[in-house]
Design a protein around this nucleic acid. Structure first.
Length: 306
DNA sequence: AAGCTAATCCCTCGATGCCA
DNA sequence: TGGCATCGAGGGATTAGCTT
């Protein structure tokens, strides 16, 4: 997925910023958020919850997650209407988007949770913590968020088709792992997602790294070494009984080769942790029963997470 | 004549307006 | 809520013009 995000001057991103600057106190905001929470209903709240989890979603992703009944065109229209209503209420921020890729090129919209939207979720909800301003992140991070969200949406679709049972999908920072290094220092392992999938009679645990070919190979190598270090602590195995396989999802064949080469330099035992796949093949790979997955992964069996 | 580049056309797809 | 038509935007394909 290649996207570019532009904050629209006419959109509610600036409206939201101005709203923040027009002396609305936290108390006032909480009161308004509570009223909106009562007003909007269950489905919009679920959409806000998804936006909270993934920070950004396209209209199509919202439709695929929350509006799965009825004719396709109707679902799109309902999603557009729903998001426009949330934008009018100031609960979401809209960005314009330019889609890249083959024969694409049509403009589209990407939505993020506004400060008010986050406040609405926090009222009586479990989403406490530091608020994040999606419109202040860089385009790369926005692309990255959408790529992770796309993986989740596709897994949910596979679940609806009965191919997998999506037990858990932890995005950042829920999927982060903290452990102590050899020198006693605190190390934070930051995968993009932690996924638990039921595939037939198996349960698959996976750390997912969504790569957009923006990081250098040495950086990738350092990340891999961090996974191996965490694996060697045995903490995850003690907690869940297995160590998840680590799946790198990459945009193209060239990048796939580069990362496979980097992993090949690692210690043999450690390299067994990793699988590299094209992003478009990722959901299918995760939904493949372990034996077939092993064959697809160039004969490398995941250590014990499969 | 061959190769390169810029301009133009056409296709695709998401957003939106209107109406039932 | 759903159907239909239209608009807007970008990328690929094609073509015309220029240079060597």
């Amino acid at each position: 997925m290649v996207v570019r995000l532009l904050c629209r001057s006419s959109g509610s991103a600036n409206d939201c910023l101005s709203a923040r600057s027009c002396a609305m106190t936290d108390r006032q905001e909480r009161g308004r958020a509570a009223r909106l929470r009562e007003q909007v209903g269950a489905l919009p709240l679920a959409v806000l919850g998804s936006l909270h989890s993934f920070r950004l979603l396209t209209t199509a992703q919202v439709q695929r997650l929350h509006l799965v009944e009825g004719p396709h065109q109707s679902r799109i229209r309902r999603a557009q209407y729903l998001l426009k209503r949330l934008q009018t209420l100031g609960l979401v921020v809209r960005f314009s988007r330019v889609i890249g890729g083959v024969r694409a090129g049509s403009s589209g919209f990407v939505y993020g949770l506004s400060a008010l939207g986050q406040a609405a979720l926090e009222v009586g909800g479990p989403t406490g913590g530091r608020r994040r301003r999606v419109w202040e992140t860089k385009p790369y991070f926005q692309d990255h968020m959408l790529a992770v969200a796309e993986l989740y949406v596709r897994l949910r679709e596979l679940e609806q088709q009965g191919q997998v049972d999506l037990v858990a999908f932890d995005g950042e920072p829920a999927c982060w792992r903290h452990f102590t290094g050899s020198g006693g220092e605190l190390i934070v392992l930051k995968p993009d997602a932690y996924v638990r999938l039921g595939v037939q009679q198996f349960e698959r645990h996976v750390f997912v790294e969504v790569d957009l070919a923006t990081e250098s190979v040495p950086t990738i190598e350092r990340k891999c070494l961090r996974f191996i270090a965490y694996w060697n602590t045995g903490v995850e195995q003690q907690r869940t009984g297995v160590f998840p396989m680590v799946v790198w999802l990459v945009p193209d064949e060239h990048r796939l080769t580069n990362i496979q080469r980097a992993i090949g330099k690692l210690a043999l035992k450690g390299a067994e942790l990793f699988t590299v796949a094209l992003a478009r093949d990722g959901p299918g790979l995760l939904a493949t029963p372990p034996e077939e997955a092993v064959e697809q992964a160039n004969g490398r069996a995941p250590p014990d997470g499969g």
